[in-house]
Amino acid sequence: MRVQAAFDEDGHIIALAEIVAEGDDRLGVRLVPCADRKLAELTVPGECVGEPLAELAARYRVEDAPEGARLILR
Score class of each variant (00 low, 15 high):
11 G>F: 13
7 F>L: 05
30 R>A: 09
30 R>V: 11
6 A>R: 08
58 A>F: 02
39 L>G: 01
45 P>I: 10
48 C>M: 15
40 A>V: 10
36 D>A: 11
16 L>C: 04
25 D>C: 00
29 V>W: 03
51 E>G: 04
59 R>S: 13
19 I>A: 07
23 G>Q: 04
42 L>W: 02
16 L>N: 02
42 L>M: 04
28 G>K: 06
9 E>L: 14
5 A>T: 10
43 T>Y: 01
46 G>M: 14
41 E>L: 13
18 E>M: 10
50 G>W: 05
44 V>K: 13
53 L>H: 05
36 D>L: 07
70 R>P: 05
50 G>E: 03
51 E>M: 15
10 D>A: 15
38 K>P: 03
66 P>F: 10
4 Q>A: 07
49 V>R: 15
34 C>Q: 11
3 V>G: 06
1 M>N: 09
65 A>S: 14
40 A>Y: 12
37 R>Y: 00
24 D>G: 03
37 R>I: 02
48 C>H: 15
52 P>W: 08
1 M>R: 07
30 R>T: 11
61 R>Y: 11
22 E>F: 12
51 E>R: 14
58 A>E: 14
45 P>N: 12
46 G>P: 12
58 A>L: 09
5 A>S: 03
22 E>V: 03
20 V>N: 09
42 L>Q: 03
63 E>I: 07
58 A>H: 04
43 T>S: 15
55 E>F: 09
17 A>Y: 03
49 V>K: 09
20 V>M: 04
21 A>W: 06
73 L>D: 12
56 L>F: 04
27 L>Y: 07
57 A>S: 10
57 A>M: 04
70 R>M: 12
63 E>Y: 12
65 A>N: 02
4 Q>P: 01
14 I>F: 02
65 A>H: 05
35 A>W: 13
44 V>P: 12
1 M>G: 12
47 E>I: 13
24 D>K: 03
6 A>M: 14
33 P>I: 00
65 A>T: 15
27 L>M: 05
39 L>T: 01
56 L>C: 08
38 K>Y: 10
40 A>R: 13
59 R>F: 08
68 G>T: 01
27 L>P: 05
44 V>R: 08
63 E>K: 14
22 E>M: 08
66 P>Y: 11
31 L>N: 00
69 A>E: 06
18 E>P: 13
65 A>F: 03
14 I>T: 05
67 E>N: 15
33 P>W: 00
64 D>R: 09
24 D>C: 08
57 A>D: 06
26 R>Y: 10
24 D>L: 03
31 L>G: 00
10 D>V: 07
32 V>L: 09
55 E>Q: 14
12 H>S: 15
34 C>I: 11
41 E>C: 08
